[in-house]
Simulated scan of single mutants.
Amino acid sequence: MTSRRVLLVAAPLLGHVFPLVPIAESLRKAGHEVLVATAAEALKVPLPTYDISPGFRFGPVAAGALLRRPLLLRAELSGTAGTKMVGPLFGAVNRKLLPGLRTAVREWRPDVVIHEPLAAAAATLGVPAILHENSLFAGPPLVEATVGDVPPPIATITIAPPSVVGARTGLPMRAVPHGLDDALPDWLTEPPRRPRILVSRSTVSQPGPDRLASRVIAAATSIDADFVLVRPGARAAAQTLPPNVRVTAWLPLARAMTVSTAIIHHGGAGTVLAALHAGIPQLVVRGAGDRRHNAELVAARGAGIAVDERSIGPEVISRLLSDASLAEAAREVSAEMAAMPHPDEVVPHLPNT
Rank of each mutant, 00 (worst) to 15 (best):
G166Q: 10
V284T: 13
L67C: 09
I217V: 15
V143Y: 02
E336P: 08
A81F: 07
G313K: 08
P88C: 08
P252T: 05
V34Q: 04
A120E: 04
I52Q: 01
R215C: 14
V346N: 07
L188N: 05
P161N: 06
W187F: 15
R106A: 14
L14H: 11
P153G: 02
V347G: 01
G170E: 00
H16T: 13
M257Y: 03
T353K: 00
P351E: 07
L77W: 04
P162Q: 06
E25Y: 00
P185K: 10
L350I: 06
P117C: 07
L320I: 12
T80I: 13
G270E: 05
P140G: 13
S260D: 07
V347E: 04
L180F: 07
E328P: 00
V150P: 03
H266Q: 12
L184K: 07
L241C: 12
P207M: 05
W108G: 02
P252I: 04
G139Y: 01
V298L: 14
L72A: 14
A278N: 04
P242Y: 13
A256Q: 04
H266Y: 08
V45W: 01
T49M: 05
T248C: 09
A324E: 15
L212H: 02
A249W: 00
A300F: 01
P60A: 07
I154C: 10
A335E: 15
A183K: 09
S311F: 09
L180C: 11
E25S: 01
R69H: 05
F227C: 02
V284Y: 01
A300R: 12
R193G: 15
P151N: 10
